[in-house]
Amino acid sequence: MKFKIGLVLLSVMMLLAGCGGNSEEGNAANNYPERNIEVLVGHGAGGGTDLFARAVTSELEDILGVNINVVNQEGGAGVVAAQNAYNAPSDGYTLVGDAAFPLTVAAGTNQHGLDDFTPIARFQSDTYALWVDPDKYSSIEDFIQAAEDNPGEITVGGTGSMGMDEFTVFLLGQEAEVDLSFIAMEGAGDMHAGVIGGHLDAMVEEFGPAKALYDDGSVEPLVVFSEERLDEFPDLPTTVENGWDLTDGNERGFYIKSDADPEIISVLEEAMKEVYDSEEYKAYEEENYLHLREGWMDSEEFTQRTEELIERYTEVADELQGN
Rank of each mutant, 00 (worst) to 15 (best):
S266C: 09
F170C: 04
Q73S: 06
L290V: 14
A147N: 04
I256Q: 01
Y313V: 01
E25Y: 04
V195W: 03
E301A: 02
D142M: 12
Q321F: 03
V66A: 00
T247I: 10
S218Q: 06
G295Q: 02
H199N: 01
V267E: 00
A317E: 00
T49D: 11
L222E: 03
G249I: 12
N36P: 11
S226A: 06
L16A: 09
V204Y: 06
G189I: 13
F101K: 06
I183C: 12
Q174K: 08
R229T: 01
D261T: 04
P151Y: 08
M162Y: 14
E177V: 15
S266W: 00
M14A: 13
T49R: 08
Y137N: 04
T159S: 15
A99H: 15
E280F: 06
F167N: 14
D179L: 10
Q304Y: 15
A193Q: 06
R293P: 05
V8D: 08
E153G: 13
R293I: 03
S139Y: 01
D126Y: 12
G173Q: 12
E308A: 11
E301T: 05
G75W: 12
V156L: 08
K273E: 13
Y289V: 09
I37V: 05
G97C: 01
E228Y: 00
A212Q: 02
F207S: 02
G253Q: 03
G157V: 05
L200F: 01
G18R: 06
E285P: 04
L180G: 13
S138I: 07
R35S: 08
R35E: 11
L320G: 03
G158S: 06
A129Q: 03
Y255L: 10
L9K: 12
Y86R: 11
K257W: 13
G187N: 14
F143P: 00
T49C: 07
D298V: 03
E285Y: 02
P134A: 08
E166S: 08
A17Q: 09
V96A: 11
A202F: 02
V195E: 14
E301P: 00
F302C: 00
K273Q: 12
G158Y: 04
A99F: 15
R312W: 09
G97T: 03
L16V: 07
R252W: 06
E232H: 11
A184T: 01
E148H: 01
I63W: 04
G194Y: 15
V156T: 10
E311M: 07
G78V: 01
S11T: 05
T247Q: 11
D165Y: 10
L290H: 11
V8T: 11
A184Y: 01
S258P: 02
G75L: 03
G6R: 08
G18M: 14
S23K: 14
T94H: 11
N36S: 15
Y289D: 09
L268R: 01
